[in-house]
């Protein structure tokens, strides 16, 4: 315990003087970085425009209310498309994520030096790029529409699901696997009896978790032309049809809440 002499008396301190200085120094550096960052944002902002922000908000708010309820009849099909992209996208992603996860997990990978880095590369590259960027790319490849969004959602979700799944695989109890191996089971049987039951809860949890996220993401893919309710949002924004925008936002909010409710129920039932 660091002590310090002060007026001839020992004073207790939590940390030594040196580590205290380092701590303060790190806080200072962090603060300077933050101020510089803020400065940069501030420089690029036309602050005189901000004087009437209140008015703008009130203006948009009054234009957006009440929502144009009748517009809902043109939204049913986009809503269906949005959910289809999220659901099918999640399923495709899971189908592809499972082998990637088994290749990436240290205890199941066929080869630590060739296969595993490749699997990790797939995980990091699909995960780092936002689904909107994938959609942007796929629209230019397969053309605008729901299909592009579906593929974008799938690709983005592979890395996410595979990462969580391979972490779950690495955490399984090795003795249970050993016990199955000791019965003379073949490698595939060891997988089915020893490994799969252990990761099943994690798998189901990941699936509904990602499905929930994908509903949110699929609502905006239409902004870049990849189908779903985002298309209507984009076109309504383009013509400044604020009552339609507010209706669409309400619908999205509703869909997200339902999705979250279902995924919470399913996770509760499994675990």
């Amino acid at each position: 315990m660091p002590m310090q002499e002060k007026n001839g008396q020992k004073v207790w301190q939590l940390r030594t003087t040196k580590s205290q200085w380092i701590r303060w120094g790190m806080w200072l550096v962090g603060l300077v970085i933050f101020i510089l960052s803020w400065q940069e944002i501030s420089d690029k902002t036309l602050w005189f425009m901000m004087d009437n922000v209140g008015e703008v908000i009130v203006d948009i708010g009054s234009r957006a209310t009440p929502p144009r309820w009748s517009y809902i009849n043109q939204l049913w099909w986009p809503i269906w498309d949005t959910l289809a992209m999220a659901t099918l996208g999640t399923i495709f992603a899971l189908i592809m994520a499972v082998p990637v996860a088994f290749m990436a997990a240290r205890n199941t990978t066929p080869s630590k030096f060739f296969v595993r880095p490749f699997a990790l590369l797939i995980i990091v590259s699909t995960r780092s790029v936002n689904s909107l960027i994938w959609a942007l790319l796929l629209v230019s490849i397969v053309g605008p529409g729901v299909f592009a969004g579906l593929i974008a959602i799938s690709i983005r979700s592979i890395g996410f699901c595979a990462k969580l799944l391979y972490e779950a695989i690495e955490e399984i109890s090795e003795t249970q696997v050993e016990a199955i191996r000791a019965t003379g089971a073949s490698p595939l049987q060891v997988m089915v009896y020893g490994i799969v039951p252990q990761i099943m809860p994690a798998f189901a949890g990941i699936a509904v978790f990602r499905w929930d996220i994908n509903i949110r993401e699929s609502t905006v893919l239409g902004l870049v032309g990849a189908g779903g309710i985002g298309l209507q949002l984009q076109s309504s924004l383009n013509v400044l049809a604020w009552p339609q925008v507010s209706l669409i936002l309400l619908v999205i909010l509703f869909a997200v809440i339902i999705g979250e409710w279902i995924s919470a129920k399913v996770r509760g039932a499994i675990i």
Binding site: W80, D81, L83, A84, L88, G143, V146, F147
Partner: peptide, 9 residues
């Protein structure tokens, strides 16, 4: 139904 709603060109 969801799959049939997706047209692939």
């Amino acid at each position: 139904a969801a799959w049939s709603g997706i047209d692939i060109n």
